[in-house]
Design a protein around this nucleic acid. Structure first.
Lengths: 229, 229
DNA sequence: ATATAGTGTGTATTTTTTACACTAAGTAAT
DNA sequence: ATTACTTAGTGTAAAAAATACACACTATAT
C-alpha cells in the first residue's frame, strides 16, 4: 500500500495505568526511566504504536512486554495531546487502564531496556511523575471510580475465587469510602452475577468465609440493564 | 525544537459527530466527499491535527471551519485506530462530539473545498458512511445517551430560553423513549439547575409555557454530586 | 475451656421512583 | 361572547430502593 497522505512529524503512543491489588492496597505500575528526558524519574509504562497494530492490540502488546500478563481487561479512556507535553516533539498519547490482581506468587517479568526498573507503588504515596503522567493517572483513577459503579470491573482485581469481604474491600479502596457490610452484600448479591461456591476460604485463623465467583454468563444475560452503586 | 523522536508514517486526525436539534428532530452534520477515496460518499467532518494545536483546540478549529460556530461544548470520546480503517495509509482518528442548537435563522457557513456540500441529516435516516464513520457515529450516540443521564448536556441542544416540554422532548429523542411528563418535571426541577423566568413562550397558538434557563452557577455548586436520569 | 477475630444475617425507616388524569390558560374560529 | 381546540401545569398513593443499625455464630489458636 502506498503512502499518499501528508507527512507529519507526529508520534502516537500508548500509556498504561495498571492498577494492581494485592489484597491490601491499590497500587500502580511505574517504571524508573533510564533515558532523557526525565532520566531517573518515575513514569507510566508506555510505548509507541506499531504501524500494523490496532490500538487495543498495541495496548495488549505493551502490557505483555512490561508485565508478561495476557488476557487482561483493558480499555482506552483518554487521549492527551498538548503540543508541549513531550519536550522533544509532538507526541500524542492514548491512555489505557488495566486492572490486575497481584499474586504474591508469580512476579512480573523484567522490563525492557528503556527502564531501570519497574515497581508497583501504592497510590496513596506516589512520587512525582515524568511528563504529564500525573494528569494521566488522575484521569484514570477518576475513570475507574465511575466505571466500578456501573460495570463489573472490580472482579479483575481479585482472584477467581474471592470472599464478599474482599470484594467490599476493593470497592471501598477504589471509591475511597467505607460501605455498610449488610447493605453491600444485599446489593451485590441482588445483581445476580455472583455464583456462591461450595467452598470456604483456607488458611485463616478465624471462621472461614464462603468463596464466590463472578458469573460471566449471568452477567451477559443482564446486558443492557444497568448496575449501579 | 529539534525533532529527535523516531519518524513514523502515521497521521492523526479528528472526526466530529455534531448533533443538532432543530426543535423537532435530532440530526448530524455530514459532508459529501469531493475526493477519493470514498468520492461522493457521505462522511463525518474531520481534519488533521495541526502541529501546534492541542487536541481540543484542533477540534474547535475544525468545528469552526466547517460550521462557523464557536464556543460549543465539545468532548473527545474515543480513538479509532484500526490499521486499515483508511485505505491509503495509517490514520488514527480521535472522535469528538458536539451538541448544537440549530437555529432556522442563521445558516451554516459554506464548507471548505474537500467537500461538495454539507448537510444536516436526521439520524433516523442516515446514508451509508465513508470509512468506519458509521462505527464512530454509533459510539458517539451511545456516549451521549449515557452522558445525558448524568451531565447537563441537553441544554446545549436548546436555545438559551426553553420550555420544560422542549427539554423533555430532547431527552426523549436522545434516550429513544417516552418519559412521563409529571415525573420528568419533578425530577429536573429537583436538581435545582434551572432558573424559572418571568417570561412566557411567544408565537404559539395555545397557552404559552413558562420559559426556563440553565443556571450554570447553581450547577457549579452541585459539582461532585451526581445527577441521574 | 476460653479468648479472639472475622462471618453472616433482618428489620424498621426514609427516600426515591413509578403510575396515573384532570383542570387551567391561551388562541382561533364562528 | 361562545365554543372548540391545544398544550401547560399540577398531586397523590403505591411500590421499590436505600439507609441505618447490632448481635449471635464459627473456626482457630492457646
Amino acid at each position: 500500500m502506498e503512502q499518499i497522505l501528508p507527512h507529519l512529524d507526529s508520534v502516537f503512543s500508548i500509556d498504561c495505568v495498571l492498577f494492581g491489588f494485592d489484597g491490601k492496597e491499590l497500587k500502580i505500575l511505574l517504571i524508573e526511566r533510564n533515558e532523557e528526558p526525565f532520566k531517573d524519574w518515575w513514569a507510566l509504562p508506555g510505548n509507541i504504536v506499531g504501524p500494523d497494530e490496532s490500538l487495543d492490540q498495541s495496548a495488549s502488546r505493551i502490557l505483555y512486554e512490561l508485565t508478561g500478563l495476557r488476557g487482561i481487561y483493558m480499555e482506552q479512556y483518554y487521549a492527551f495531546g498538548d503540543p508541549h507535553r513531550h519536550p522533544q516533539g509532538r507526541v500524542i498519547t492514548l491512555a489505557y487502564y488495566a486492572l490486575i490482581r497481584l499474586g504474591g506468587d508469580k512476579d512480573l517479568r523484567p522490563i525492557s531496556t528503556y527502564a531501570k526498573r519497574a515497581n508497583w507503588l501504592p497510590i496513596t504515596d506516589l512520587p512525582k511523575l515524568a511528563f504529564d503522567h500525573q494528569k494521566i493517572y488522575d484521569k484514570g483513577l477518576e475513570k475507574i471510580k465511575r466505571r466500578i459503579k456501573h460495570q463489573p470491573i472490580a472482579f479483575e482485581l481479585l482472584p477467581e475465587k474471592f470472599t464478599l469481604t474482599q470484594l467490599q474491600h476493593v470497592y471501598e479502596l477504589v471509591l475511597g469510602k467505607k460501605l455498610d457490610k449488610r447493605n453491600f452484600r444485599k446489593k451485590i448479591v441482588s445483581f445476580g452475577v455472583l455464583k456462591e461456591l461450595d467452598e470456604k476460604q483456607k488458611g485463616v485463623s478465624y471462621r472461614a468465609a464462603t468463596l464466590y465467583r463472578f458469573d460471566k454468563r449471568k452477567y451477559a444475560k443482564l446486558f443492557g440493564k444497568e448496575i449501579s452503586f
